[in-house]
Design a protein around this nucleic acid. Structure first.
Length: 198
DNA sequence: CAGTCGATGTACT
DNA sequence: GTACATCGACTGG
């Protein structure tokens, strides 16, 4: 199995957002394989998208969005959460795909440990609660700004092609949790999948 | 259930 | 000072 190559990422962001559905996100973490199937994504683009961090140009935070497609862009928000994106398109274009939800496949015990550690309520979480949101995904996979800029063609964090499925299984909607450019139909998810964020 | 709201750091106006 | 690509604790029915 080979990881997705730079060619995959260096395409129109909306296309990459759709094609990432079903792919496998793999992190080797202290000798353990953590694997999740991508079931929900959102596209963000510098041009015509006021919600995109890159909309007003390059800054210290968003600089990775302008790098060549195939990098990981991680940012910190709400004083306590991380979200991760896959950078798309050519160098100089500020664009990325937010990874919003995974179906957990391997390393569920470690994911669960990571998720429960930070909570007040230490009760056992259902599997569907492990990765059903962008900040939950980062918690489960222990992703922080330490991974910002990581090249996804290299270990320990990579994406692999998963089972293919028909276009009709892809749902589309407006993006979640934003106010700017909320009408853009740039959220994509696998229909009837139990692990989508909502 | 649903709805509300506090946490808590950083980027940017 | 304000907003923020969120989450989960808490409230009331």
């Amino acid at each position: 199995m080979k990881p997705l190559t730079i060619d995959f990422y260096q395409r129109p962001t909306v296309t990459v957002a759709q094609d990432l559905l079903g792919c496998l996100f793999v992190r080797l973490f202290r000798g353990v394989r953590l694997v999740g199937r991508v079931v929900e994504t959102e596209a963000y683009h510098q041009v015509g998208d006021a919600a995109c961090h890159a909309h007003k140009g390059k800054t210290a935070r968003n600089r990775v969005m302008f790098e060549t497609g195939g990098k990981l862009y991680v940012y910190f928000t709400y004083g306590m959460h991380f979200c991760m994106n896959v950078v798309t398109e050519a160098e100089g274009v500020g664009s990325a795909v937010l990874l919003r939800a995974f179906e957990p496949l391997e390393g569920l015990e470690i994911m669960h440990k990571h998720r429960v550690e930070k909570r007040v309520n230490k009760a056992t979480l259902a599997v569907k609660e492990l990765c059903s949101g962008p900040a939950k995904v980062c918690q489960a996979f222990a992703i922080s700004t330490a991974q910002n800029g990581h090249n996804l063609s290299e270990e320990p964090i990579q994406l692999f092609r998963g089972e293919s499925f028909t276009q009709e299984k892809i749902g589309t909607s407006g993006r979640i949790g934003i106010s700017q450019a909320a009408a853009l139909p740039w959220r994509f998810y696998i229909k009837d999948n139990n692990y989508v964020s909502r």
